[in-house]
Amino acid sequence: MTQERTSVATFKGNPLTLVGPELKVGDTAPDFRLNKNLLEEATLQDFAGKIKLISVVPSLDTGVCDAQTRRFNEEAAGLGDDVVILTVSCDLPFAQARWCGAAGVDRVVTLSDYKDNSFGKAYGVLIKEFALDQRAVFVVDKENKIRYVEVLKEMSEHPDYEKPVAAVKELLG
């Protein structure tokens, strides 16, 4: 049975139910299967040997998600080749590609959780009421241990941008 957590997140003050476990620093990052496009998938193993900053947004076509993705795209420039920034949303892959093209976002890898919400369920961020993923940021080291977690209490708020970037830089030494 899939775990459901209530009273941990809201949207404009209205309670949401998050599906999946509450991940913590020190946990092993769950594997995932996300779509790069309609035919090609990506898994955690595809990013082996890299530090992964995983930025989770409900939909790129909203103001906060747009700003969050642009911000991490800017941060990517200063983090080097040992770091990959993944943006996960439930947007269709071609909508993600269209948004990135229009926004000039070229340093983050967009991945779609639209098919079965498996990322959302594995990372404990699937919003039962909307079938979207709750805004969150995870930093995963080269050995796939979680080193930073922020799951936003309020869906419409921005994440902390400095702390996950600092966590990545600490892992870089």
Rank of each mutant, 00 (worst) to 15 (best):
M1D: 08
M1Q: 10
M1N: 02
Q3I: 13
V8M: 10
T10M: 13
T10E: 15
K12R: 15
G13N: 03
N14A: 15
L16K: 10
L18G: 06
G20F: 05
G20E: 13
K24G: 01
T28P: 06
A29R: 10
F32L: 07
L39N: 11
E40V: 12
Q45F: 01
A48T: 09
K50I: 00
S55I: 03
S55R: 03
S55N: 15
P58E: 03
S59G: 15
L60N: 14
D61Q: 13
T69G: 07
R71L: 02
F72L: 08
E74G: 02
T87W: 08
S89E: 06
D91Q: 04
F94Y: 14
A97K: 15
C100H: 11
A102Y: 06
A102N: 14
V109T: 13
T110H: 04
D113I: 02
D113W: 03
K115R: 15
D116E: 15
N117G: 03
K121G: 00
Y123M: 08
G124M: 02
V125L: 11
I127F: 07
I127N: 02
E129G: 01
A131S: 08
L132G: 01
D133R: 00
D133T: 14
A136I: 01
D141S: 01
D141I: 00
K142W: 01
E143S: 14
K145E: 04
R147S: 12
K153L: 05
E154R: 07
P159Y: 05
G173I: 08
